[in-house]
């Protein structure tokens, strides 16, 4: 249940909870400002046609993140259902 993985490993339709951010510098604060803080439930909505970036549902907003950045976001509690934050 609490196996950690990174955000970019989520498949379409899966959601997970952020447990740690490894990103550094400006992007770290940017991610937090859009609501990606520890404890936030995120679901993976859809990959772009070329597979990267991927669109995630974060606190009601759809945010696209490149794999370089989503691989720095550690998540756990992966489940198959989307949009659980509601």
């Amino acid at each position: 249940m609490n196996i950690e993985s990174t955000l970019n490993e989520l498949n379409q339709g899966q959601s997970a909870t952020v447990t740690r951010l490894l990103s550094q510098g400006g992007i770290r604060r940017r991610l937090q400002d859009i609501g990606l803080v520890v404890g936030t439930r995120v679901s993976c909505l859809q990959k772009s046609p070329l597979g990267d970036p991927v669109a995630y549902l974060v606190r009601g907003a759809v945010i696209a993140i490149r794999s370089e950045d989503s691989s720095n976001i550690i998540v756990s509690g992966v489940s198959a259902s989307a949009a659980e934050w509601l």
Partner: peptide, 11 residues
């Protein structure tokens, strides 16, 4: 190198 960014897809 490419820098990090987030892109919002509005409703």
């Amino acid at each position: 190198k490419a820098s990090s960014f987030t892109l919002e897809l509005p409703p």
